[in-house]
Amino acid sequence: MSLMLAADVNVAQNVSFYIIAAIMVFGALRVVSGRNVVHAALWLVVVLGGVAAQYLLAAAEFVAISQVMVYIGAVMVLFLFGIMLTRATIGDEADLNNKNWSIGIPVSLLLAGTLVWVIVDQYGGEVLASPEEPMSTTAISDVFLREGLVPFLALSFVLLAAAIGAIVLARKD
């Protein structure tokens, strides 16, 4: 396979990428096709963990850590709480999909086909240089607190507003 033999492609990196990618795609398919809500949530954990692993492969350590803490630590807990509080059936459910679910197949296949085609057309054969060292947190924080300061502050407000909004919405009265 020519893919594997390119000069500066790190074989081990590639192998682990494909393994993780396969697990992720499988997990993602289970998330959207499974009949059990709780299982779907747990498969989502697998996918999100896989994304974190891919970040590590891409030398994005800080983002990977954030991914683990925010998604797997916080968001997933929220999801599980949401599932429990809305009293989803524990176990299989017959009608997790809506009646017109089949329309999603052509739409997503079309979408995937278009995207893959465009990507291969544009970036096919482009090789990513394996960075000697991971992206340093210092570099990220420099961007965050210089050019990215205003969006950073705006984002803080978004989070605050979301927290308040969530409380207001979920409050019982």
Binding site: L96, N97, G104, I105
Partner: peptide, 16 residues
Amino acid sequence: AVLFSIGVFGVIARRN
């Protein structure tokens, strides 16, 4: 791209 398409399918198909 594949994950994106799977997500789109989920948005369209899921009832919950």
